[in-house]
Simulated scan of single mutants.
Amino acid sequence: MLYFDHCATTPPYEEVVDAVREVMDRHFGNPSSIHRIGIDAERLLAKAREQVARLLGAHPDEIVFTSGGTESNNLAVIGTALQHGGRGKHIVTTAIEHASVSECCVYLERLGYEVTYVTPDGTGRVTAEDVLGAVRDDTILVSVMHVNNEIGTIQPVREIGAALRDKPRVLFHVDAVQSVGKIPVQPAEWGIDLLSASAHKIRGPKGNGFLYRRKGVTLQPILIGGGQEGGDRSGTENVPGIVGLAKAFRMTMERREAAFARLMELRRQLLDRLQSIPDLVYNGSATETDMAPHIVHVSAPGFKSEVVVHALEEHGIYISTKSACSSGEDRPSRVLLACGADRARASSGLRISMSADHTAAEIDRLADALQQTVEQLRRYR
């Protein structure tokens, strides 16, 4: 089996599985309990929070543990809107955000908020000038993802954060689910107020994530209850999963520079092979530094992407069409449409997302299978 769908999820490190199992077995206490078993669990929670904060260049009090990237994005976007709606009801985002951001914006529009959706260029990249140009006196939030989860374009969040420093009433949120552990992310230095991350994208357990909330930033909680996580996110913390998240984050960061170099080699090799397949059209920027190292996205106009995916599965090769949250939908990619692609191109996208553990031989096997699949399907087009 060759798994090339690491944007959807990643296989957990064995060490993470062992850590989660041990905590579930030996440290099952509720971290809010005042007895010894609860205190032991609370200590593990505090240690994990300190480790995540250190790796992110943050303070432990700035880390809010959540159930994953979707909840982190919801808390950042809706929590900001509800908390600060009294001083303005305008939000700036892009037309290519993950559904966990874009659908929050649609929800807020129904509540009377106004949202400006900045359109990217043909490579899937917005400019800092366009984002800043959309900011108004009543803007309370700018939300721009770091790496697009579908085609892999890196957005200029550092430049946007720097420019927003002159607008202290505007909070800046970054969905970093596809960038944390892959490329440098420095929220404090880049002027980011809120940053979302997910454990299972970095070989950690599903159902865990965190939101970096810069000290001094206030949010309206979207989960009401016992006031855990400093009041930002009620609900008993998933201590085993959080420990697994922290361990996966540490292990991933220890390997990040080597993994980046390896992934860039694999990416170049794959792009070189795919260029020889005439039916495929590359989506993204030709400028290497504008693209995430682990994602390659192509379209096969005239073919149904789902058919290609299932045909590759017969070869034991697994890729995807778009975000795993929407891959089952039979409609064109809204990301590609926003980039100016026609319907045929937007309906035939194929996302290949790699791991640094892949080999050159596996890349060749993928390319060979994809070429063979396209040639076979061409006969029935």
Rank of each mutant, 00 (worst) to 15 (best):
L111E: 06
T123C: 06
C105S: 06
R87L: 05
E97H: 03
L108M: 11
G86E: 12
V64T: 10
I96F: 10
V106H: 13
V115I: 15
V64L: 00
E71I: 12
T66D: 01
V115F: 01
S102E: 01
A99V: 11
K89G: 09
E97V: 11
V115M: 07
E103F: 00
C104Y: 07
H98F: 14
T116Q: 08
T119Y: 07
K89P: 07
E114P: 07
S100P: 09
T80W: 07
E109R: 13
V92H: 08
L75E: 05
L111K: 14
G112L: 09
G88P: 14
V92S: 08
I96L: 06
T123H: 07
C105P: 01
E103Q: 04
G69A: 12
V64N: 00
G88N: 11
I96K: 11
S100T: 10
A81T: 11
E71F: 10
H98R: 07
C105R: 05
L111W: 05
T70D: 15
G112A: 02
F65S: 02
V118Y: 02
G86Y: 03
C105G: 05
I78C: 06
A81C: 09
E62K: 10
G79D: 04
V118Q: 00
E114K: 10
N74T: 05
R87N: 10
A76T: 10
N73W: 10
G88A: 13
T123D: 04
H90M: 14
V106G: 01
G85D: 15
G88E: 12
H84F: 07
G69R: 12
G124I: 14
Q83N: 05
A76E: 03
E103P: 03
Y117K: 00
T93G: 12
C104F: 02
E62D: 03
G124K: 11
E109G: 00
T116F: 00
G86R: 09
A76M: 15
S67I: 08
C104R: 01
T70I: 15
R110G: 12
L75F: 06
T70V: 14
V77D: 06
H98P: 09
A76P: 13
I91Q: 05
V115R: 05
A81F: 09
S72K: 02
L75P: 08
E114S: 14
E71S: 07
L108I: 01
D121F: 14
V64Q: 04
I91Y: 12
A99H: 04
A76K: 13
I96M: 06
N74G: 12
C104T: 08
N74Q: 04
G69P: 14
D61Q: 04
V118D: 03
Y107M: 06
S102A: 07
P120N: 05
S100I: 07
E109C: 10
E71D: 15
N73T: 09
S100E: 00
I78F: 09
T80Y: 11
T66L: 01
R110K: 14
T116V: 10
V77P: 13
D61K: 06
V64Y: 02
G122W: 03
T116R: 02
R110N: 03
I78S: 05
F65P: 04
L108C: 02
L111Y: 05
E97P: 12
G112V: 13
D61S: 08
V64A: 05
E71T: 08
